[in-house]
Design a protein around this nucleic acid. Structure first.
Length: 390
DNA sequence: AATCTAATCAACCGCCTTACG
DNA sequence: TCGTAAGGCGGTTGATTAGAT
């Protein structure tokens, strides 16, 4: 039996709030805060249930709310986040200051969904609607790297142009190619072992290359010698970028940890709030390592682990200690209080990443511009700014 | 001007999670 | 460990507004 609705009590008002009610609620919360929403209506002199008060406050009356239509960049960010997180509106909202989950949800349902459909992209899977391979996993857990990974040619400027037929064409072509590869490698799927599937996935991911969105190009190892204050060295060796906004995800490391990846064919992508597994032991699945308030939703190539789903196996534990805040798409995330150690991908030979040719074009106190040799285009290209947050 | 339809979004409902005794 | 209360979240509803006929 379900719980009784809190507003079923006789005498409690429902429906749209009046200006007078708003004023009462605002005045009360500004003066007293809200220790207990259930008590708020009584104390504020409102004939509403606490839940209704909370909703009205968080979605409408809060002074830090940003009103008005969402900007293009906000819309881009919502699409990107949704491809990782699915309908986790509150999570998405947490990346857009001044916006509420309700507002984003409404905007998604009334605007973005239609826009995506119009250009031939399934708003659920974020993949082109035509020739879709059935994917029963919800976004955030599925192998939804296709959208993000599709615009290889736009490696350095991967914003999804929703008005661009060209982008859509790229998506379609790309997907068809990969579907064909999948079909050929899995012609008799029942005979394919899990291990083989993993390898296929890795190969496939390699073909996807580094996508737009929150990106961390693991083809480049984080060198051991980067000191927290040595931004120049750090920036040159830590190409952790938010491809969507041109910001960097800032990793700070201390001591002599290494972050390596299985081989040059693999990708590691961080999304959501980034980062970290802790205290990896050899052979340990990293989903056992995710801790604390750091919501981890990253994927190694197409293993796609998001905390509760599959995780790559750490076969050689290296460690990286977070010592500073991290900057992620404009959000400052707190470093863990304790010594959290992040991990850890399989070590490979030093020459695993021949494409890397990191360089600093300009280095300032808070910003560093970087370039590197794009292994796909073979050109040396500007990667944009890394914003450093001390 | 009247009516119909579609779009929008605030608000509600009910389930889930968390905190606490 | 269990039960309960409260907060939080995502899906849905329905009143209102805008645009089309």
């Amino acid at each position: 039996m379900g719980r009784q609705p809190c507003c079923d009590k006789v005498g409690l008002k429902k429906g749209p709030w009046t200006a007078e009610e708003d004023q009462k609620l605002i005045a009360f919360i500004l003066n007293n805060g809200h220790c207990c929403w259930r008590a708020v209506p009584k104390l504020a002199g409102l004939l509403r249930c606490g839940k209704s008060c909370r909703l009205r406050w968080t979605n409408y009356l809060r002074p830090d709310l940003k009103r008005g239509v969402l900007s293009d960049s906000e819309e881009q960010l919502i699409i990107e986040l949704h491809s990782y997180l699915g309908n986790r509106w509150s999570k998405i909202a947490s990346h857009l200051p001044g916006r509420t989950d309700n507002e984003i949800k409404n905007y998604w349902n009334t605007h973005i969904k239609k826009k995506l459909k119009r250009i031939g992209i399934d708003p659920v899977t974020h993949r082109p609607i035509t020739d879709q391979v059935p994917d029963t996993n919800p976004p955030g857990e599925s192998n939804n790297t296709f959208l993000r990974a599709s615009n290889t040619e736009e490696y350095l400027a991967p914003k999804l142009d929703l008005n661009s037929h060209n982008t859509n064409e790229k998506l379609r072509t790309f997907n068809n190619d990969n579907d064909a590869k999948e079909a050929s490698t899995r012609s008799n799927d029942s005979e394919v072992t899990e291990e083989e599937k993993s390898i296929d996935s890795m190969t496939e991911a390699a073909q996807l290359s580094v996508p737009g969105g929150y990106g961390f190009d693991p083809r480049v190892e984080l060198l051991a010698t980067a000191e927290p204050q040595n931004f120049e060295n750090f920036a040159a060796t830590s190409p952790c970028f938010d491809f969507l906004n041109g910001n960097a995800m800032l990793f700070q490391q201390q001591g002599s940890p290494l972050l390596r990846v299985p081989d040059e064919e693999c990708l590691l992508e961080f999304s959501e709030d980034i980062i970290g597994c802790a205290n990896a032991q050899e052979g340990e699945s990293s989903d056992q390592l995710i801790k604390d308030e750091f919501s981890v939703n990253s994927c190694l190539s197409s293993f796609n682990y998001s905390g509760e789903t599959q995780a790559p196996i750490c076969s050689s534990a290296t460690e990286m200690q977070w010592t500073h805040d991290m900057l992620v798409t404009g959000s400052i995330l707190p470093a863990p209080e304790t010594d959290m150690q992040a991990s850890l991908w399989q070590e490979q030979p030093e020459d695993a990443f021949p494409g890397w040719d990191g360089d600093i074009l300009h280095h300032g106190i808070n910003v560093a511009n970087c370039c590197f040799s794009n292994p796909f285009t073979k050109k040396k290209e500007n990667l944009g700014q890394i914003k450093l947050q001390r």
